[in-house]
Design a protein around this nucleic acid. Structure first.
Lengths: 345, 345
DNA sequence: CTTTAGCACTCTGTAGTTTAGAGTGCTAAA
DNA sequence: TTTAGCACTCTAAACTACAGAGTGCTAAAG
């Protein structure tokens, strides 16, 4: 199936893809002929294009129109024909400046800026999964008494997350009792990722502790809730209006479906999560995507890390007619910057 | 200018407004005639409608079409003709259930649910300004040492907000020194709203403290940053796709402008802030709005409180052809629930 | 004086028709 | 194997025709 094409066919396919990406209009033989270095006539090109159509790389929207790439055509282009884009210096700059600006930056802030850069540099919709709490390792638990009846539980991870929650302390605890509980918990949990803190582990700890102090029910409830709650992680979106600029979304109905999708955070999360892969950048074209709603789109994803630990995914979503070369370059650059920036604190 | 209309004209105006809201089609004399209790002929209605047009309450899109209400027409309707909607029981229920569900609810969660309810019950876009940190009063400041080099500053307000931040402690502090600083700050700041903690006050405190301990520069930086940071408060949006259902937004260009607006959080914040008023619910029709981008829309806003302290605003944004009666009823109900729910913890 | 029936007139939206232009596939010659 | 030439196809835009909805005005009736 994966027979590779001869040189001339490759050249023609590339030309069709590149032109179609640029103009969104079916590409005719004349146009391709012009791009061919040693002048070949349009008739010859026509023959080759007919071949490419038969092989499944191109299609005609109707009998007498130019050709547009099929999904298979895009795939071949991405795998074999694409050269990586040189980024213009102002994009380079906007990437590095918007990410590294302040020093005392919150991680959320960095992520939000990234969505902005990513969408504006690619002219597509960008989506970024915020850092995944549950993949971080447990580092420290503190309980801070607020007043007679309430305390603040603070949970700190190795990647710098801080979660907190006010809890009721029905039974007053002495300071030392509290200390005991806390240090016990810290000892048991240290180094585990949040993922690993399962309900059964919690129950075990609970039994253990109840023997000594029949108190901290509330604290455990927090811990459990904290796990559940984090299932719905934020996905940040940028440039959702960019799809309106693309001619493939001139239909109000398509727009609606797309925007509906953007409103469903859990779904977006799933989409990103499923596509996150350890190795750099993944391109999913059209029906290569698992999710029904984006089977007419291309999704390009990458992952970012803190100290070699993958903690989130970023993606660019658009029509299959997407400037692959540019998007991939931008994404690559952005991921590098992010990794560097996030790991340097 | 504000001459009130006679009974018959009022009836006709109401009929036109109600019908137009329902169908989005210009309303003709025949339609109005049907709605008139004692049969009046369409010819009579026509005469009255011509009058109403001259007075500025109605217009014709073109010579031989029905009438549609002008902004002035809507205004008269809202002020004098509208009766409040009875809400169907399932909406009542969805309001109360989605807001009061859990017990240990985070305030953000409640707000997000509110956007959902509000937009789905009104079929419009809803926007809610999250609770305003800076209007809360300072309650407690804690500093929690994490390790040798870092500490966690925790700031708690009377309305239950908890802000925290990791700070570097270049110079190690003894426990007692830390205690001293913290209790001094607490004493000075207690009861002030965050708004009132101005830069000058911070500087004063700084001078004061430097005399005793030449240390806590970092802590102050936090405090200052915390103030700045909170200028960009989150605005939660719901049902942005609802505008696509309205025929006034069948033009892709209008859609784009609207969605662009939704992406500009600071602007939305300003819009909501400007419209927030102490007394219940405000209706801004068309050009009554100050902001250029929504001069073709109607914005209906209300405020919610915690213990009689206004902390946020919620709004419904849509075309001027909006079901005023329903939106106002829903908003009223939602605000009541919110106030009750937020104040009971 | 108010209401109404009747009628001519206006404007829109839709459906059908025409036409220019772009691009193809095929054939036959180079 | 390549290319010139030509007949053919399909689309998108422009134009025309027409039915339908609604108006304003006039003149008659209450």
């Amino acid at each position: 199936m994966n027979t590779s094409l001869n040189n001339r066919k490759e050249h023609i396919l590339r030309s069709v893809v590149v032109n179609y990406i640029k103009t969104a209009e079916p590409v005719g033989s004349r146009t391709v002929a012009r791009s061919y270095p040693d002048g070949l006539s349009s008739a010859t090109i026509r023959n080759e294009m007919a071949d490419l159509e038969e092989m499944g790389y191109l299609v005609q929207p109707h009998t007498s129109a130019g050709r547009i790439p099929t999904q298979k055509g895009y795939r071949y282009y991405v795998d074999n024909l694409m050269d990586t884009d040189e980024l213009s210096s102002d994009i380079e700059e906007s990437i590095s400046s918007s990410i590294s600006a302040g020093k005392m930056r919150e991680i959320e802030q960095i992520i939000m800026n990234s969505t902005r850069v990513l969408s504006s540099a690619t002219n597509q919709t960008s989506l970024i999964m915020g850092p995944q709490f549950k993949k971080s390792a447990f580092h420290q638990l503190r309980i801070l008494p607020l007043d007679e009846k309430r305390g603040l539980v603070v949970l700190i991870t190795d990647t710098g997350f801080i979660k907190n929650k006010v809890i009721d302390l029905h039974h007053q605890l002495s300071h030392t009792e509290l200390q005991q509980v806390v240090s016990y918990l810290n000892q048991k949990l240290y180094g585990l990722t949040i993922d690993q803190v399962t309900t059964s582990l919690i129950n075990e700890l609970k039994r253990d502790l109840f023997k000594r102090l029949e108190i901290l029910e509330q604290a455990f409830i927090l811990l459990e809730e904290s796990l559940k709650e984090e299932k719905q992680i934020r996905v940040f979106l940028g440039g959702t209006t960019n799809i309106l600029n693309q001619p493939e979304f001139k239909d109000v109905d398509k727009i609606r479906r797309m925007l509906k999708l953007f409103e469903q955070e859990p779904l977006l999360f799933k989409i990103l999560e499923d596509n996150s892969s350890e190795d750099s950048i993944v391109v999913r074209i059209g029906s290569e995507n698992e999710f029904e709603d984006i089977k007419e789109c291309t999704l390009i994803t990458g992952t970012y890390r803190i100290h070699d630990k993958t903690i989130g995914t970023l993606g660019v979503l658009g029509p299959t007619r997407m400037d692959y070369s540019r998007v991939i370059s931008v994404m690559q650059r952005l991921v590098n910057h992010l990794n560097q920036q996030l790991s340097s604190s």
